[in-house]
Design a binder for these strands. Structure first.
Lengths: 246, 246
DNA sequence: AGAAAATGTACATATATGTGAATTTATTTG
DNA sequence: CAAATAAATTCACATATATGTACATTTTCT
């Protein structure tokens, strides 16, 4: 069950991240199609908790820096080592495609750092973006780091759907693809989940964290080059990753 | 009316900002005294929206960097000029008390930047902290920047409560205090709102934003020195504020 | 200035939602 | 390795909550 008002808080936050200016109750209500009275309650709650204020009279609400203060405290803990961002920045620069660091979240994989391609046609992904762990290159690069028992436990919760022609729709299909990935030395996906999207990924264990790096872009641009891209990821990783311990 | 599940999202975020480590469903449920099933729904919602993930298997949930990404986008807009933080940092260092930048939010005043005192006994305030605009030095320094009509509009919404012996409990009492403040050149409060707390504040208009600076601490330490503190604020402000335009 | 339109606020009620109990899954212990 | 314990999920129902309606306030237009 989705908790509507919890989701609404996030929607409001994203609204402000986009709008980048204060908004009145009426504007927010209209934007989301919410009743005024409900919007009123929600804004009052956020204000009362110190997350919204009124920068200038009658110009409406805007988030306080408390969001930032909280987010900083949260993200200071075990931040990704700086070289991981360099890694995806370099990869994106060299390939012209979108590069990301990905982490597990149950049956999904979450993007926890992203450097977007500059191309007009590109893989549009943001931090927090989620994709099925079994039907994506990045996700399978995570699964490779699991024990067979752990994988089983994940498999049991997956709802196998035919996202595209090549989506693995059974446990055995996923396991087979994992074996192929080991053989070829990297994970790949050709529109297994997102239409027209191809990508190459490799596992990225950091300490006891199981992450992966992925480079992805439109199939027509990257499709024939996945092997090269994978090799590039491996080389770049080798260059940037500190040699001493993980 | 307070929207419970909206508040809960903020509580969870604050929980993680404090805990600074992943937490399982059970831990979170126990911490807040929420039923597991409700906690499950809430965590699922936050995960689905890309705001929580599972950094390592079975170690529970932790917020994704998406919070930070969003907060950054939000706070990049019209950030406070850097000298304002220097201002309160210097004031806190010199006085040994807590110094803050404050902004209006209806009948309340919100702390939008804070440098805390290092003293064991101190005014404990965080970014997002809210106090009544009419019953605090910082709030009245905001009201001084309003037109009489705007003040009236605020007054009509205030619920006058006797927070302490010296709380102004009528419009006229507030207006009188504002006149005194103008005469003496700064705003002050002696436990008007918070017990044992005294402070000095002065208006801080920046562009078309109406802010204020306040230094506050325990009455016994700062009480006899408010005039000196106010003078210090004025001097420091004069030193740091760029001369060209506001 | 006065009227009209837009915005913000309060409240009762129908309904979406949170929750206790039951079920399934995972982990620890004997 | 099986039994026991703990954790995570599901689900039906009672209740807390979102909203339609009405009212108040502020702003805009004539």
């Amino acid at each position: 069950m989705i908790v509507r008002q919890a989701a609404n808080v996030l929607e409001i936050m994203e609204f402000f991240a986009q709008a980048r200016k204060p908004a009145t109750l009426a504007e927010i209500a209209d934007h989301f199609g919410w009743p005024r009275s409900s919007t009123f309650n929600l804004l009052a709650t956020l204000s009362e908790k110190g997350y919204l204020y009124e920068p200038r009279p009658r110009a409406g609400f805007y988030p306080t820096p408390r969001w930032l203060a909280m987010a900083r405290m949260i993200s200071e803990v075990e931040p990704l080592p700086p070289w991981t961002h360099t890694l995806i920045a370099d990869l994106s620069a060299e390939t012209g495609e979108t590069a990301s660091i990905v982490a597990p979240a149950g049956v999904m994989a979450v993007f926890i750092d992203v450097v977007e391609s500059q191309a007009a046609i590109r893989y549009f992904a943001t931090i927090g973006h989620r994709v099925p762990i079994h039907a994506t290159a990045s996700g399978r690069a995570l699964l490779l780091q699991y024990s067979p028992e752990e994988r089983d436990s994940v498999y049991r919760k997956i709802e196998f759907k035919q996202y595209g022609p090549s989506t693995p729709i059974s446990i055995e299909a996923v396991e087979a693809e994992l074996r192929h990935s080991i053989a070829r030395g990297y994970c790949q996906s050709f529109a297994d989940y997102s239409r027209d999207l191809a990508g190459a990924a490799i596992p990225l264990p950091i300490g006891d964290r199981r992450l992966s790096v992925v480079v992805a872009g439109p199939e027509f641009r990257i499709g024939s080059k996945v092997a090269d891209v994978a090799a590039l990821i491996a080389r770049t990783l080798d260059r940037l990753r500190p040699k001493t311990a993980a």
